[in-house]
Design a protein around this nucleic acid. Structure first.
Lengths: 217, 217, 217, 217
DNA sequence: TATGAATGAGTTTTCATTCAT
DNA sequence: AATGAATGAAAACTCATTCAT
């Protein structure tokens, strides 16, 4: 039995332990969310204890996703608030992609979100998750607006579209190990460019087009 | 007992019936693939009969997805082979979006593909699915190449990126009914623009940037 | 479609074809009775056709078993009716074991008989199978009685007990392939003597004891 | 909900409850292993609970068989270690047969072992089962060796052959209820002597022959 | 006779969640 | 707070058998 987490700091630590365990297990096999049982074991806790910190399994993974999204927004925020640079856009793409590389579970979790995460969350939890996301997005969006001299709200739009492109490409290009071998045949070459390179190019194309257009009303 | 499908035409009809039933049920609740039991009932067949036409549940949904993708590629193909038009791009976007509207299950199924479809398919089935997709993509890609005077292979790339943008936006903007009410609060306005309008704009931006750039090597 | 079996000879041939196919498949994997589907395919017939010759799957395997038993009894019959020999008993054991070797499916089918075969036979079928067996046994038993100068009925008893010993030893000593490797460890040596050698010795011991005893009333 | 089995003693009790329920149901219909569902109900437990104590259905029946075998070996052990008696052999047969009578499921389970039990056990489970059996056999075998002054290893052999005879006879002579009526006709008399009496005689004959023979090398 | 399409009963196992201790 | 024993819903798939053609 783990020592009791009495004060709220200890509790936060325990909560973080559980999240870390879940993240670790998910990275080991991203085909499915690990079972609560395994998460508990990986965190050296009993199953019941996990439920003291999270009401449902889905809450765990929503929390993970929220963390990762917050981090991603934070990267973007820092990029654009770091003062004007000559090649701000290139800089943005670079940090953005680097962050995604460092958090390989982000896009995988996100890919499961539709079919899994929203199944078993209370309205309150869902709202809270979406609220945090929206607020972060709006905050960083307005940083973009300022930094790039865009009309209000344009930054949010650019961010959402950039992320959409990212997620969409990732889902096209990230293959489970088992499929890698299968798609090694030359005939499949057209559908398996490298994700990272592809993302960089696609983002550049998108932003070029977006910045060229008259600001959307 | 349904009348027997003896010749191959009848069989094709029966197969299509099953697919139609599966499509219908999936549209009713897109959070999970309907059980084979329910599909059989919806098609007025016995469970075992479904397994005469599809080896696994996943094969059913892969077939559905393949159909939808083929149709989408076909739309694009027709758009670009219909002779030069002054506003070819706008025309493309219009038909493309119209097709997606007519096939609301396409993007939902696609969103489940990563976590579900690839779980229980044989290598051969997977390969066959991907092969059909790739070949269609390459075929239509080259139509684009010709029609727009692009370097070889560029069309495939444009298609993949356009679809990535589509899928990514959809996953951001299509909310399950239950969530609609929740996100009606003004505070969520920034993350819930209309999918269709958003897609049109994003595609326009992307294509403007893509066509402006020097052809990628 | 196979040509029609009209006269009763053709039918007998077809019936034998089915039995041969079943036997072949069972020998390939003796863990379970092959499905009717596979038997039909192996006999180049449609599933329904098999049911024109056998009412149930179990009837097929009962027929197989009946054939093998009849053959075994025939061997014994010939052994003991071949005139007195100095070492009649040794001769019997030799031919008996040789027959079992030549019909490896006999003891395997027999081992499944309790749990499988009797599940789904009509009373009439069951009776017919047992009757044929009993009559053969009584017939050969009386040959033994005569040949060895035993009291009436003793031959049947000796045969049943000999076969019991055979079947019991076989079930102890015939291991599925998968188990072979497992039991290769020296610690298991005591439970895996060679079946054939073991059978020969055990039969010799049994018969020595049986012939020594005062005839059982 | 049953009261919780917290300490290991309670758990052993619960495990035993499950085994008892399985045994009871199997005796009611020995043609097939009862489903886990029925076992759980018979033990007044939820299905899932059964799986806390046994990993697979087959493990349940293997445990039952192991128990019964261990008990049988124990009987034999006690018989032969109880000091020299004038009619040691008769005494052995009596206790041996009495034990089998008291455990009617033993031989029935054993008859299913070939076709069923080994289907779904891990190698480790299989090995463990066989190991326990072998060790028990060797242990009791050496008691026989000592008690009867036999060459080392001869006891194991006698035990295996005796059990083979037992199992083989039982499979010939134990008829499912349904078949009893069928075989009541006089014509079947030769194949339906009483199992118990037959076993006693056959064992006596076998042992007489075995003890008469020069010790097998 | 031969075919093979259609039927549908039947069962194991997992795992999120609860709650007695 | 922590534990982990107990719960029970849920679903894919096989295959013997039937019967329309």
């Amino acid at each position: 039995m783990k020592s009791r987490a009495i004060d709220s700091e200890d509790k936060a630590v325990r909560r973080a332990d559980i999240l870390a365990a879940a993240r670790r297990l998910f990275l080991e096999d991203s085909h499915q969310l690990p079972s609560v049982s395994r998460i508990a074991a990986a965190a050296s806790l009993a199953k019941g204890t996990v439920y003291l910190y999270f009401r449902t399994k889905e809450e765990i993974f929503t929390a993970l996703l929220a963390e990762d999204f917050a981090g991603l927004l934070n990267e973007v925020h820092q990029t654009f608030s770091a003062g004007t640079q000559p090649d701000l856009l290139a800089h943005f793409v670079e940090r953005y992609v680097a962050y995604l590389d460092a958090r390989p579970e982000l896009l995988r979790l996100d890919a499961m979100a539709y079919s899994v995460l929203e199944q078993n969350l209370s309205d309150a939890q869902l709202r809270s998750f979406k609220l945090e996301l929206t607020q972060g997005l709006v905050r960083v969006g307005s940083v973009l607006d300022e930094s790039l001299g865009l009309p209000s709200g344009r930054g949010v739009s650019l961010l959402m579209r950039s992320y959409a492109l990212t997620r969409g490409l990732w889902q096209s290009l990230d293959f489970p190990t088992k499929m890698r071998a299968l798609l090694a045949e030359p005939v499949f070459a057209p559908i398996r460019p490298d994700f990272r390179a592809e993302l960089v190019q696609a983002l550049q194309e998108y932003w070029r087009g977006a910045m060229a257009s008259a600001p959307t009303p």
